[in-house]
Simulated assay, not measured.
Amino acid sequence: MRLDEEELRAIILASFALKHFRLDILLEEERDGTEILSEEDGEPEEEGEDERAPKRKKKAARVHGLSRKVRQEEDSDETLNLLLRCNPPEIPPAELFFDGEDMVGECSKPFWKQLTVSDLDGGLCRLTFQKEYVVKALIPLLEDSERPGANKATQVTVFGKDGAAHQMMLKMWAGNKMMYVLSSGWKEFHTHYKFREHCDFVIGWMFRHKQTRKICFAITSRRFHAQKPLSSRIRKSVFKY
């Protein structure tokens, strides 16, 4: 069958239009694909930022926590140098504790410590000693019958800076961390002298009374401007036994 000229022209035009239609579809698909690809390329950056954000927050929190810890401790060189210049005498001053009367026999090296919240806690009611100090300075002065144990305490007389005598118990607390403490009278003692946490530092000695031969302590205090617990650096430098 032969096509006339009009039919042939129509077929050619239709074929040409179909080619261009298919080309437009391909171009549109290619453009769509490019846009989607671009969005996908951008998504990892957003996801990466999301993944890094919690890490940055955690790091910031750690730094903030560290800075808070630093602020919660007294670690200045000024405080360190001030404490290093304070050298307690080797024996308790008689004029301070005993109206000048000589009562001190064998005597330990002086101890001193910054009073903490737990030292003044009404529920705990005890003054703690460093174990190293007790082993080196106190135990050698005690007879076997006087040495505190897990189920054994020693009664002692504690003299304050006004000469008043207070009865307490020297004990060993056995637990996760063994400690030696003065208790059973410590609360009344620190209340009487109005001790305050952090700013008050107690200075004391254990000695054997010349007349009674009983074990005694003499404890006084000094007040500084410290408002926070001392750092480990300062404690290790100052409180050496």
Rank of each mutant, 00 (worst) to 15 (best):
L120P: 12
V104M: 02
L127C: 06
V134A: 05
C107W: 02
E90N: 05
D121Q: 02
K109F: 07
D102W: 00
P88V: 14
D99C: 08
F97R: 06
T116D: 07
E95R: 10
C86P: 01
G123N: 07
K109N: 09
A94G: 04
K131L: 08
W112N: 10
N87M: 12
L124Q: 10
L82R: 06
I91A: 09
K113I: 15
V134E: 02
R85V: 08
C125R: 02
F111K: 00
E132P: 10
P93C: 03
N81W: 07
G123D: 09
E132M: 13
V134S: 05
D77K: 13
C86M: 13
K113L: 15
D102L: 08
G100E: 04
R85N: 04
E132W: 11
F129K: 07
G122T: 11
T116M: 02
P89H: 11
G100W: 02
C107Q: 09
G122F: 07
I91V: 14
E101M: 09
S118P: 03
G105D: 00
D119P: 09
V117M: 01
V117T: 14
F111G: 01
W112R: 08
E101G: 01
N81S: 15
G105H: 08
P92Q: 03
S118V: 15
E90S: 10
V135M: 09
T116S: 09
D99L: 05
E90Y: 11
V117D: 11
R85F: 08
N87C: 12
L82W: 00
Q114M: 10
E101T: 03
P92L: 05
L83N: 11
P93G: 06
T79D: 12
M103Q: 04
S118K: 07
S108L: 06
E90I: 12
W112A: 11
I91L: 03
Q114E: 02
T128S: 09
G122N: 14
F98W: 12
D99Y: 03
E90V: 13
D121P: 06
W112E: 06
S108M: 03
K109E: 02
E132C: 11
E132Q: 14
I91W: 02
L82A: 06
S118F: 11
V134R: 06
V104E: 08
N81H: 13
S108P: 10
P92R: 01
Q114T: 12
L124Y: 13
M103V: 01
K109T: 04
V104L: 03
T79S: 14
A94C: 07
V134K: 05
E90R: 15
